[in-house]
Design a protein around this nucleic acid. Sequence first.
DNA 1: GGGTTGCCCGTTTTT
DNA 2: CGGGCAACCC
Length: 713
Amino acid sequence: MVESLDFLKALNPQQREAVETTEGPLLVLSGAGTGKTRVLTTRIAYLLATGCARPWEILAVTFTNKAAKEMKERLEKMIGAQASGVWLGTFHAIGVKILSKYPGLVGLKSGFIVLGTDDQERLVKQIMQERGLDIKKWTPGIVLDIISRWKDKGLLPEQITAALDTDYCGGCVADLYRIYQERLRLLNAVDFGDLLLLPLVLFKNHSDILAEYQKKFKYILVDEYQDTNVAQYLLLRLLAKGHGNICCVGDDDQSIYSWRGAEVGNILKFSQDFSGAQVIRLEQNYRSTAHILGAASALIAQNEGRLGKTLKVADGRDGSGDLVLVKSYWNGSEEANKIVELVEDEQRAGRSLSQIAVLVRASFQTREFEEALIRAGIPYKIVGGFKFYEREEIRDAVAYLRLVLNPDDDLAFLRVVNKPKRGIGEGALKNIQTAAREKRLSLFQAVGWASLRPSVRKILDGFISKIKEAQKEAKELPPARLAPHVLQEMGYIDFWRQEKSPEAESRLENINELYNVLGEFETIADFIGYTSLLMDADETAAEEQLLVMTLHASKGLEFETVFLPGWEEGLFPHQKTLDESSVQGLEEERRLAYVGITRAKEKVFISYAFNRRVYGQWQSASASRFIEELPPEHIDNQARRKKPMMMDIEDFSWQIPVKKEIPIPAHKRRVGRKVYHETFGDGVVVREEGDRLEVLFADFGLKKVLAKFLEVM
DNA sequence: GGGTTGCCCGTTTTT
DNA sequence: CGGGCAACCC
């Protein structure tokens, strides 16, 4: 039975203990760079190899699809095909799996849809408007946020007490929550919160089903435990009651998602929650140099209420390595340009661009870097931004498919009924909605009953018959063939074709990409079920490019060199965090700083600017308090203490738009070519995607324009 | 019903 | 400064 346990030899004593302590609750406090993923995967392999469990008796939950995918791949390398039997996925994916088995028991029907944020907000807005609430005074976004936080806590509408509901809307959010839930069920839809909340309801009302799962999952493993919310905790506690073998891996110092409902408390009180829990600390860091760890450790030590860990430097790294460099700049644009020069220095020193990252606090900061990098001709990628499935054109296309799959999907109907413009306005829709409510029908069905002008009726009849036609075709055509046909028929493709903007072309490209994704599914239902939980299309392969991203997005990644710009009071720590959550907020910001520093293996550059443009307004700034908190022995502080006078700055090279010659490669490309545009004037082509060119204009900055509007100089 | 202007407001973001 | 949205006008 016992296969080779060779994989244990690759572990240090603490890691090995974390793997071999299979029975009972176990908390593995895993500091940055101490090998937590290795421990998790090895633990699963160990459980299987020793015969403790069969694959389907192991539940492993992660936070992101990316983490789940990575773990699955690593597990497959270790144990092969057995890996596919393990219940491994995000909390939400596991939630879907459970709910899909018993939809009827929680008020759903099979084939329920998972709503994205925009659909959720639309729904809340609609409910608020029906209630006659002032959308300006009380925004649907915030109401949805409050509801989501309640869901994160595992609270149902009837559990919201008056005391919980006084913050906003004069205490009517609980009411809105109740109606919102009713409306979701009517639509046979759930939101992300429901994927955790409804399994809890299911288990609470059906102890036999709970018992089944409790018996099934002999071993439970949880990644990034510091990021779990109360609902996830409750779910884990229920499931773990069976065998009591729950192993949570996390780092309280890297908890940075409290604003999204994560509870640091979960990891802090693990030992009380799971009696008899053992705690193992992984403190052997394999990633960073002594100075980097020294700086990061000292910084995070300023936080109260930690479980406490001391990261140890890997052997042979003592005393070696560069100090953490701290610099100050006149303003944000000097900062960006000088950092880009430093990036070029790194390149000259032989460092690969893919091993360098710029990590910022807020996404608006990426813009300055984008411009500076383009000027310097350095390939880069802004991580994050718009996700594939969040794009307007993709959500529209998916809505068309949803409507074909299920014409009673009111949200899909509303989204596409007048897109492209067909002449269906507010008034007509109101009438349909009224009819729908009276007859208790879906909007699609209610069209026949609504009082409509003949012209409008004719348009809608055409719309409906086209959808019905598509439904017939769906029985014969695979989704990848059906979708282009439907979108063409409905006029959606022409809608973007007629649009003259350069974005339109990339939207069409995205729709084509969607057809590719559809190629992997046999039915629309399969596709909808699969993608509802995915936010992003597959990542493009790692190329030789510099990454620019937010600190949040960088968690779990590592680079040789890390640049941390914008360490200013008000930006980092962010003012809003301080205003809203004072000390707690400050500590989370500090953890964010800790995450940033510990991403680096070799070099860390921290910087700040004395002036920054915020909302078009120049603002004076001072160094972040976090810089003061860095121990002098680990840093090389080259920053000016006081804000200099403008005349004290010797070097203004960053201010003049650098008209650097971008070398034109031998093969004929348009990148680097000087061009002229009617409106924007002189510029240089910096990127090329078909006829869509990205041009850096001397007076207007970066713009995307169509090639035909440009004259070559 | 659809286009235009003018006002408000502005972190972080995965599922 | 610039996007999103609602009131306003054709």
